[in-house]
Design a protein around this nucleic acid. Structure first.
Lengths: 111, 111
DNA sequence: AGGGAATATTCCTGTCAAGGAATATTCAAG
DNA sequence: CTTGAATATTCCTTGACAGGAATATTCCCT
């Protein structure tokens, strides 16, 4: 897992940008307006997201359409899998434990 | 989604600590040895992970056993869900497209 | 060609984080 | 109660990063 993804998302405004772009590509100005950022800061944050490959640009005339890239998020998802296994196991163990309790309880009632 | 989790994991050594603790609780010294960190740096990184609630401590005598906490990772997993939906949709669309191509091809062969 | 809109870049400044080195704290054992 | 092991904390220095303000760039339109 590459820390650049985490690094890019550790800045609140950049996280908000990523969350905003989930609905579709947006222009720098639109992003700045939506998040109440000044245009230069929006540009700067987008440049970081670009280097982290969390975003891609399409230039159309004067404007730049920034679009979300899913690959780094998929990598995160894949990285999480090892941990997901842990909490799933724990859930399963709890489940088995409860079933065991229940069957023991049934036996007691049968006596 | 809280940026403190991303922030904590954006430091390579801290990420390595989290990846190391997946196998079970470890002592500060063990962590430092495993990752070839100096003890004070290990302590400092653990303090950050502690504040981010990615880790918890159990003091036993002289030592401190640091143990992974899954909640922030579960939160990340939950946050990713919105994006997972996107790439699943895309996969489904591609799948449907391929099925459509296949059935059209069959029709052509039938003619 | 010139003006204005959209965006990027630069410069400056303040803040924060990380590593190194040294020191403080806490605990068990003799 | 002293020593040594394990850990935390402090101080210092350095580098990265974010925001503000100003400016540069690129493009369309007339």
């Amino acid at each position: 897992m590459d820390t650049t993804t985490f690094s890019a998302l550790s800045e609140p405004n950049r996280l908000r940008i990523v969350e905003l772009l989930i609905h579709g590509p947006l222009t720098v100005g639109d992003i700045a307006d939506n998040l109440e950022l000044r245009q230069p800061q929006a540009s700067k944050h987008l440049r970081v997201l670009l280097k982290a490959e969390l975003v891609e640009v399409e230039a159309v005339a004067n404007r730049r359409n920034y679009k979300l890239r899913l690959e780094p998020l998929q990598a995160m998802d894949h990285w999480l899998e090892a941990y997901r296994n842990i909490w799933n196991d724990r859930f399963n163990n709890l489940d088995i434990y409860l079933q065991k309790l229940q069957s023991e309880n049934k036996e007691n009632n049968d006596n």
